[in-house]
Design a protein around this nucleic acid. Structure first.
Lengths: 331, 331
DNA sequence: ATGAAAGCGCTAACAC
DNA sequence: GTGTTAGCGCTTTCAT
C-alpha cells in the first residue's frame, strides 16, 4: 500500500500541493477553513511527512548526534535521560554513535555526522582524544559542538563538566576532616582533562592540609593499565587509612580487592566522586561527592540548542557537586 | 564554505554527475582509471555524500530505530552495546527514542519512525503496552519489528527474551537446594509477559518441591506500586529465610530494607535474575541467574537485519541463562 | 564506458 | 488566499 503524500492529499481535495504543505505547517496565508479541511484529510488518510524529503529540501536534518566513548553503566543512562529531557520537546531526533574509545572511530563518526547533515553534536570524547582538531570540520560546516563529561578544554568549543577540581578537593577534605592521613588516590587516564582537574583538587587539598607526599600515593588505572596486581601489592604493603576514587567505575574495579584484603570497611575509609547510585548499592554505604549525569546531559543539550539557535558564545559550564556524608565517613 | 557535491566533482573532472556517482559506488561499468581519479578527487575535496538526498532518492533511510521504555542502568547499556556490535558494521545508523513507559508516547514514536522511513524497529515495550496493535502500521509499511527484553508475545512479530521461566525455576531451585523453605518472591508488573513467565517458573519450582502456598509469598513492586512500607511490614512479620528477585532493579529497591532490618546476609538467602554485574557490587555477593543484555541486544539486532533482508519467518528466541553460584547461596 | 535527463516528496519564491 | 514552478543532491533508466 503506497503511502499518502502531499500530492495525494492535493488531488483528493482539489488543491495545490503547496497549499497542502502550507496548511499543514500553519502558514498564516492559508484560510482557517482550508487548514482544517487539509488537517482532517491528513489524519483520515494517515498522512505522515517524509522527513528525508523535508529536511533534504530545507537543507537541515532535525538530527542531533550523540557521540559516546563507551557503555558505562553508571553514567550513560542518566546522561541520556538528561539530554532526552530537553531534546524530546525540541522537535529534534537523537542519532547515537559509540566511538569505543578510539580516535579513528571518532573521526569516522564525525564524517558520518556531516553526511547526515546533523544540526548539532554532543560528544563525550574518547580516552585517546587529546585535542579538538577533528572538530573543526564540524565548526567549518556551521555545526555547533558541545562536549560533555569527558571534554578537552578549548576556547573554540563549549564544554560541560562537573566542578572537577572542587569535587576532588571536597572529597579529599572529607577524609582529612575524619582524621585520615595516609591517603591513596585512584585516578583514571592522566592525559584526560577530567583526570588532571580532579588530581589537582586532590593534591591541592593535601598540600593545604600540610600532608606530605610520603603520606599519600596515587595510582592510575585505565584501559590497558588495569594492573590491579600492582595495586594489590601496594595495598598490602602500605597501611592506607583512606582511599579516594575519582569515579564510580574505578571504585567498582578496586572494590573486590579491598574486600579480599579485608581492608574495607574496618581499616580503610573511602570517598568517591559518584553519580550517587553506586554508594547505595554497596554495604556499608560510602560517603561521596555526588554529581548528576542528568544535569550534565540536560545542561549540555540546552547549551547545544542555544548554539543551534545562533547564540555564539563559547562557554565552559561547571555543574556543582555536593558532599553526601553518610553517618560516618564509611557508613 | 559550500560543501562539495557530486556536481562539483563532475565539473572539476569534466565528467557527468552520473559517472561520479557510479564511480564512487564502484559500479562495474566504470573504468578503473576513472574510478581512481574520482575517488582521489573526492578525498581531496572532502566530498561527503548527503545521506538525506541519497536515502530520499532510494526510498529508504539507513536508519534502525531503537525504542526503549526507560533509562534502566542495569540493562540498557549492555543491551545497546549488543545492538551496536551488530549495527556498527551493517551500514545502518541507530536513531533512539524513549517511550517513558507511556503507550501514547510509544505510538507517537512509531509515527515518527514512519516519518523517518526507518528500515527496522527494535523495541522494548512500555509497561503500559499490552498488545501489538500499534505495530501493524509498521508491518503494513513493510518495516520489520523485533521486540526485545520487554515483549508481547504475538505470532506476527519476532521477539527476543531470556528463557524467563527456566531462569526463575532454576533460581528458585537453588534456594530450595540450599534448604530454604520460606521463600518470598519479589516481582514486577504482573501484566507484563516477562513477569508472568518468571512467576510461572517460580511457582512451578515450588509446587514441584511440594512447597505449599503457606510457605511462600509474592509481592509485586512496580511503577506506582512501589509500596516498600507494606513490604517492610511483611518482612518484619514473617520469618522468610530466602528471597527471590526477578530482576536487578527490584533487588536494588528492596536491598536497603533488607539491610535496615538486619535480614541480609545472616538470616536471609537471596537469589536474583541479574545481568551479572550487580551481584559483584554488593557485599556479600549473591548467587544469581545470569542473563546477558549484550546477547539479547545482539541476537535481536541480528534477527532484525535478517528480516530486513527479507527473511520472513517470525521467531520467538530465548537466550539461555546460567546459574552463578557464589560459594554459598548468599556469599 | 560515459552522458542526458528525469524524478524521489517536499517547500518557497514568485505569480496572480 | 491559492496556484505555478523550480529545485534541494542524488541515483538510475535509457540512450549513445
Amino acid at each position: 500500500m503506497k503511502r499518502t503524500g502531499i500530492k495525494d492529499l492535493a488531488k483528493l481535495l482539489s488543491l495545490n500541493p503547496s497549499t497542502i504543505s502550507r496548511a499543514l505547517s500553519d502558514h498564516p496565508d492559508i484560510s482557517p477553513e482550508t487548514k482544517s479541511r487539509v488537517k482532517k484529510a491528513a489524519i483520515e488518510f494517515n498522512y505522515l511527512p517524509n522527513l528525508h524529503a523535508r529536511y533534504f529540501r530545507q537543507k537541515n536534518s532535525g538530527l542531533i548526534a550523540l557521540i559516546l566513548p563507551e557503555f558505562n553503566m553508571f553514567f550513560i543512562p542518566e546522561l541520556m535521560e538528561g539530554i532526552n529531557s530537553v531534546i524530546v520537546n525540541s522537535g529534534y531526533s537523537m542519532i547515537i554513535f559509540f566511538s569505543d574509545n578510539s580516535i579513528e572511530r571518532e573521526k569516522e563518526i564525525i564524517s558520518h555526522c556531516l553526511s547526515w547533515v546533523v544540526e548539532g553534536v554532543l560528544i563525550s570524547v574518547s580516552e585517546n582524544t587529546f585535542d579538538c582538531d577533528h572538530f573543526y570540520v564540524l565548526k567549518n560546516a556551521g555545526i555547533p559542538v558541545v562536549m560533555l563529561d569527558k571534554v578537552i578544554f578549548s576556547p573554540e568549543f563549549t564544554s560541560v563538566t562537573i566542578d572537577d577540581k572542587v569535587a576532588a578537593f571536597n572529597g579529599t577534605k572529607h577524609l582529612i576532616d575524619n582524621d585520615k592521613q595516609n591517603i591513596l588516590g585512584i585516578f583514571g587516564n592522566p592525559r584526560l582533562e577530567i583526570t588532571k582537574n580532579r588530581l589537582a583538587g586532590f593534591k591541592e587539598c593535601l598540600s593545604n592540609h600540610h600532608i606530605l607526599h610520603s603520606d599519600y600515593d596515587i595510582v592510575y588505572l585505565y584501559h590497558d593499565f588495569m594492573n590491579t596486581d600492582v595495586l594489590e601489592e601496594k595495598l598490602r604493603k602500605t597501611p592506607f587509612d583512606a582511599v579516594f576514587f575519582m569515579s564510580d567505575e574505578l571504585f567498582m574495579t578496586v572494590y573486590p580487592t579491598l574486600l579480599k584484603l579485608n581492608l574495607f570497611p574496618e581499616k580503610t575509609s573511602i570517598v568517591a566522586i559518584s553519580d550517587g547510585k553506586m554508594p547505595y548499592q554497596i554495604y556499608p554505604r560510602i560517603s561521596h561527592i555526588k554529581h548528576s549525569g542528568f544535569e550534565i546531559g540536560k545542561t549540555a543539550a540546552e547549551a547545544l540548542l542555544r548554539r543551534m539557535q545562533g547564540v555564539s558564545e563559547i562557554q565552559h559550564i561547571e555543574i556543582e557537586t555536593t558532599l553526601v556524608s553518610l553517618e560516618s565517613v564509611f557508613i
